[in-house]
Design a protein around this nucleic acid. Structure first.
Lengths: 187, 187, 187, 187
DNA sequence: GATGAATGAGGATTCATTCAT
DNA sequence: GATGAATGAATCCTCATTCAT
């Protein structure tokens, strides 16, 4: 029978990512999750809470992925690769989750807590970049925000291409992309 | 008294970009445009038509901007600068329009015509990239789609930073960004 | 250019008869009458007044037709023929008007004055019937209301057949119908 | 608690018959049926579907009444009595339904299926009349359509009188009406 | 715990009416 | 006088949420 709460979350991620929060009805989430509409309210206070829970969950999961096996002892170059490759991998496995995070971070439906979690995610990345900059590996002319924007923006759009089938992700391509984006931000 | 149709379009661009199509009510557009709710239906058959008209309008305008004074006779390097700088300028002047285009191209509310217009926009850019590639200026290892994704993705995220005040667009920064992104895609 | 007030009335008769009062919009009447929507309000205070005016007009016109050349001096048989034939003729010339009268006499939009005019129309017919009954020409077992109902009901349904093309009105058929209906109410 | 679907149908029959389809709001039907407005849409796709369902239901019910215990083996005279008396009875028990059928058969809101069902009702009656005509019981000078029109028209107008209290339906009057109308159509 | 029927507030859209031109 | 653009109240319909089973 499966875990109904988990089924609901997965359904919500998929639908909120594809149709947007306002374009997704609760009965639709219920159907996608194969539960009754009322059941959703047993697990989540309301639709907005559901959105916030899944966003926090997914951002936490992504942050865990980025931090797991992070090569703190290696070079900035290798650290960038780790972040980039992890992001691309995440976008392959959890495309909908990435789209959800990308499109709803500025939504009027998210709570301060969720915004906070997003900031925490960015802070981790910023800290790495800052460290790289101090080692003169990363160009000082480029503000941290610009570096994050370029990388994250590129990942999001690339993920759309991979997901839409316009681009096929091979190991060779991944390596090329990693090198190219590193060229964009390094000295 | 102003042009009511234009007022409605501007209000719709702003609101659809910020709240999404489904999160924007027609009375809200009416209020923002300082017209009666019924007036919107004198100019647009329904809310979906309004979305499609403004998307087509704005994509046409952006395409015109990209094509205007395009340095067909100059180097690929200069052509890239033209495209990048024009995009950044457009994102400064018409931030909402850019966000609208970026977030609604895959919306279930847009017509085939609108999708077609979007493709046409991409085609123009792709053609330029293709020409650059033949001149061996642009890396052959990078598929066209990846080049467009990296550039467009970066511009969108950078625009969000500029608009949110996290980053200030100076001539120096624009120059740096142009150079860095060129490094990402050139040989 | 024609008489705009008359054009509006004719358009209203046609449309109110075919679509009903509530199913007819003022702009539709305006279009049918080839005038601007605002013009209607120059001649009629509002949509309800327009309905009442045309109903009163048409009932008056029908009453005039029934009374004109009424054979007060002839037999009840001939008087009945006059009424029946006049009604059928009216239904041919002014089918929409007859349908309007038939379907809107109990409408919640008509004023007491209009109801009164309808009663006046019925009173005239009733008086004739009453006189015929006193002459023992018309069956005393049949209440006046029943006689009027049978005749008027038959005329309305026959008119629908003629108008719909299911039945063709010939002189022979008119004569037959007159005789048959007379048989229904006479002794 | 009662059957909500049935309550809605009954409320709709009453209101559509009295106010017309266009003059009846969905909340009004809901109130009359003592249900929430949204509940109506759980049972009927929209207002038009509701109209068509009740019309088809009622026409089927009337057709069943006319066919039930129909004296196929008796004389045309007795067959006519059966039809006439059944119609009058139906108009007493289901006055609103009769008015609904009578006033909405030409409505622009009814589907082909509904029109078809109405035709089927008429066809049954026509078949009987045709058979009577072949037995030389019914006047050959009168087209079938005219016979149906006279009878149905008379019944509708008589029903209005009975319902409005202008006429009281007694057994004696019913007998008289039956005889008189038979005189109108027989040889 | 799970369901889905029921609700009614809210959103898209229409249309009677007004009024500046 | 005539018009039709503009309005907003009213209508159809949807959907978040509740609650009896």
């Amino acid at each position: 029978m499966g875990d109904k709460q988990e089924d609901i979350k997965q359904a919500a991620i998929t639908l909120f990512a594809r149709r947007g929060f306002d374009g997704t009805t609760v009965p639709l989430v219920a159907e996608e999750a194969s539960v009754g509409a009322g059941t959703i309210y047993r697990y989540f206070e309301n639709k907005e809470v559901l959105l916030n829970v899944i966003m926090q969950d997914e951002m936490f999961r992504l942050e865990e992925s980025l931090k797991a096996k992070f090569p703190f002892e290696k070079t900035t170059r290798e650290q960038f690769s780790h972040l980039f490759i992890t992001l691309i991998r995440y976008s392959q496995e959890k495309f909908d989750a990435l789209m959800l995070i990308n499109s709803h971070t500025t939504s009027r439906h998210i709570t301060d807590k969720t915004k906070c979690d997003y900031t925490s995610l960015l802070t981790f990345v910023s800290t790495i970049v800052e460290a790289g900059r101090e080692q003169e590996m990363i160009d000082r002319d480029l503000p941290i925000e610009a570096i994050v924007a370029i990388t994250f923006g590129a990942v999001v759009e690339l993920a759309k291409c991979f997901n839409g089938g316009e681009l096929l992700l091979t190991d060779a391509l991944l390596k090329t992309l990693d090198e190219k984006l590193w060229r964009a931000i390094s000295r």
